[in-house]
């Protein structure tokens, strides 16, 4: 089973990378961009066949390792 997770910075946490990428895009002439926030994307391939169990496991991984819950949120976006 393959689980996809997106990790993003929490809403009010400063994202220096996103900010600078935004400025660079402006500089290159891409108009009308309001904000850029950068995150991380993981694809986790497990032996687990039960979707619910697989999700729970990945959720635990997010809490314990993948995300830094002090500043980041995680979101499981896909299981297949």
């Amino acid at each position: 089973m393959k689980i996809s997770v997106i990790i993003t910075l929490k809403k009010d946490v400063l994202d220096p990378q996103g900010k600078v990428i935004h400025q660079a895009l402006d500089g290159m002439g891409f108009d009308g961009v309001n904000e850029v926030r950068q995150g991380k994307y993981f694809e986790i391939n497990t032996n687990e066949t039960n979707a619910k169990k697989a999700k729970d496991k990945v959720e635990e991984m997010c809490k314990k390792l993948l995300a830094n819950l002090v500043i980041e949120n995680y979101k499981i976006i896909d299981t297949q």
């Binding site: 220096p16 990378q17 600078v20 990428i21 660079a24 500089g27 290159m28 950068q38």
Partner: peptide
């Protein structure tokens, strides 16, 4: 350059 954000050197290469 550009804080090494995105990929090192990527944004500077477009300056």
């Amino acid at each position: 350059s550009y804080g090494d954000y995105l990929r090192c050197g990527s944004m500077a290469s477009k300056s």
